[in-house]
Design a binder for these strands. Structure first.
Lengths: 146, 146
DNA sequence: GTTAGTGATGATACAGAGTATCATGGCGGA
DNA sequence: TCCGCCATGATACTCTGTATCATCACTAAC
């Protein structure tokens, strides 16, 4: 089962629709296999020769897809990537974690141990903070760029 | 010894100058005691009635101050805060970590254990990433906003 | 089939964040 | 005094993201 079909299934399960336009955006993001800005993604969609995709729609659709956990927004770089787990049963019960390469656009979705996450939560709790469900983003240099 | 004098000393040690304009920006940031955007900080500077502070200068000066580890840029929110350790001897030998409140502008600079940082580094190393010296930002809800 | 309602999309305009570039000013050293 | 260098001023621009209203498409009730 391909990625888009899986995504469609997940949306159906949630009682929402993966429309043509939404599919188009998700497909472009999956295929480019990198972290791209909303405007870069708009470009990519428009290169595919369908009717023009306005940036405004891309923002709206990205919000929708993020709500369905099909894409992730990297707040440190203002870019978006397709979730690595669309086709599998992975649920984001823990906050997703990302390694972002400073040199190229590569982003790796990883799993740190729950002990590590707990350690961070404890430090936060010590100063009265409740962590929200947002993700962890750490930047560095990937193996290709070293 | 007050914060600004400490900052001046640190700059002198590095062979650079904390000019009048730079002092003005740093003072405004220290006094507002919150995370503010570059434009908000420009506002704050201009409210003090000196000669007008252009936003462009604020950006340049913030870059300078960040280079001197006197301020931190929070990339998840595009805001800036004064370093909590200007007056002490704390050196940022480890990446600084921040807890950001989603509801108010409060930001807490904290220290997670070095084991926790190592754990994150190990996960990164496993997929070929070298972590850079950037900081860790985690968002949540602070004690006041709960 | 027609009609009305609702959610998705289109279009335009705007606000906010950040950068590029060149001109000007001020200070220290030859 | 003059020169050079760095900091600052000024302007314009790009990129990111939001607000608002109009239109379209699908569904459900009649």
């Amino acid at each position: 089962m391909d990625v888009i079909s899986s995504a469609e299934q997940k949306c159906a399960d949630n009682g929402v629709k993966l429309t043509k336009r939404r599919k188009q955006v998700l497909t472009a993001l999956v295929e480019c296999n990198a972290a791209v800005s909303a405007y870069e993604l708009t470009e990519l969609c428009n290169q595919q020769g369908y009717t023009a995709m306005p940036a405004m729609s891309v923002y709206r659709i990205l919000d929708f897809l993020e709500g369905q956990s099909l894409v992730h927004r990297l707040s440190t770089t203002n870019k978006y990537i397709a979730c690595s787990h669309i086709s599998c049963q992975h649920s984001h019960f823990r906050r997703p974690q990302f390694l972002i390469c400073n040199d190229c656009t590569r982003v790796q979705e990883v799993d740190v141990t729950s002990e590590t996450l707990s350690a961070i939560e404890r430090v936060a709790a010590d100063v009265g903070f409740n962590l929200s469900d947002k993700q962890l983003e750490v930047s560095g240099t990937c193996s290709d760029c070293k």
